[in-house]
């Protein structure tokens, strides 16, 4: 028994060492940084939890937090449903791996590039989105519905359209992940269940509702949790496309953290945002791990 325990400890030791060095220590050190007031690169004074209090009373932080929430509320359900539907539809299509690869392509494009592409896609002159809207407006005019025409403008330059434009972009690049996870999940559902349902005369919709969806629960947990975490820490697209603007319309927590630290040198405030971030993401991660272990 003693030998077994020693073996376990020896095998765990490298992981514990690396985790302590690269995860736990930085987390604790970050919390330590958040307890001070900084002047450019030097600590000015110990202020306890004052940075957290300031942050919770800061309207900019409220807005960033709300923007994150809006992003989550639109992005997570859309990606999950889109991913599920595409995976189910493509299951019976011959050569579907080509389509899946194309959908997955968004995942392998660096987000910085995606941010630049979004700027072009939503540009009023050269953008594909405005090109489509122009065609649509042409059709509306031809049928006498000019008053329903869409405004042609650079979406990222206006407070009311900038956030939706970025969310659409993030959905585009993340849907590939959901499709791949659900496709793998579908492969794991025993065919006998569908055969039994067919024998009982279940319609395709009932089969989908009562067999496919419940059997895909583990895949859904992975998709939802991973997407949530990804959306929470979204930064690159915002940084490249809008820098949190215009008028703070696209500011999110990760961007605010960067700006407070690397632009304003308020390292204490930036560290406080990072700590809050860590707590939120940790909660989701714990839920994910527990759900998977329970399985």
């Amino acid at each position: 028994m003693k030998t077994r325990r020693t073996t376990i400890i020896i095998f765990l030791l490298p992981s514990i060492l690396f985790l302590s060095l690269f995860v736990i220590y930085p987390m604790l050190y970050n919390f330590y940084i958040s307890l001070f007031k900084w002047k450019v690169v030097r600590i000015e004074s110990f202020i306890g939890l004052d940075n957290y209090v300031k942050l919770l009373n800061n309207p900019q932080f409220h807005r960033a937090f709300i923007n994150n929430l809006i992003w989550i509320l639109i992005h997570v359900p859309t990606t999950t449903v889109l991913g599920l539907l595409l995976a189910v539809l493509l299951k019976r299509v011959k050569g579907s791996y080509i389509i899946k690869s194309v959908i997955f392509l968004g995942m392998v494009i660096p987000q910085i590039v995606v941010g630049i592409m979004l700027l072009f896609m939503f540009d009023s002159d050269a953008g594909v989105i405005n090109g489509l809207l122009r065609s649509l407006n042409g059709f509306l005019t031809s049928v006498g519905l000019t008053e329903f025409s869409f405004p042609i403008r650079s979406w990222t330059a206006y407070p009311d359209t900038a956030l939706p434009a970025l969310i659409i972009g993030s959905i585009w690049i993340w849907t590939g992940f959901a499709v791949v996870v659900y496709s793998a999940g579908l492969e794991g559902i025993p065919k006998d269940l569908y055969d039994a349902a067919a024998v009982d005369g279940a319609s395709p919709i009932k089969t989908f509702w009562h067999i496919t969806i419940p059997m895909l629960r583990p895949a859904t947990i992975v998709v939802v949790t991973m997407t949530l975490i990804w959306v929470l820490k979204i930064f690159d697209i915002v940084y490249v496309a809008t820098r949190g603007g215009p008028g703070g319309a696209t500011n999110v927590m990760a961007y605010m953290m960067y700006e407070q630290g690397f632009v304003f040198y308020k390292w204490g405030i930036a560290a406080a945002i990072a700590t809050i971030f860590t707590v939120i993401i940790l909660a989701f991660s714990v839920y994910l791990v527990r759900s998977m272990v329970r399985r």
Partner: peptide
């Protein structure tokens, strides 16, 4: 200071998108 500079830039973009926001800007 950087904090004012960044806000100034951002608020001008907002003004360009929505001229009616002048007083709040």
């Amino acid at each position: 200071p950087s904090e004012f500079q960044r806000l100034f830039w951002d608020k001008l973009k907002e003004l360009w998108a929505n001229p009616d926001a002048l007083d709040s800007v």
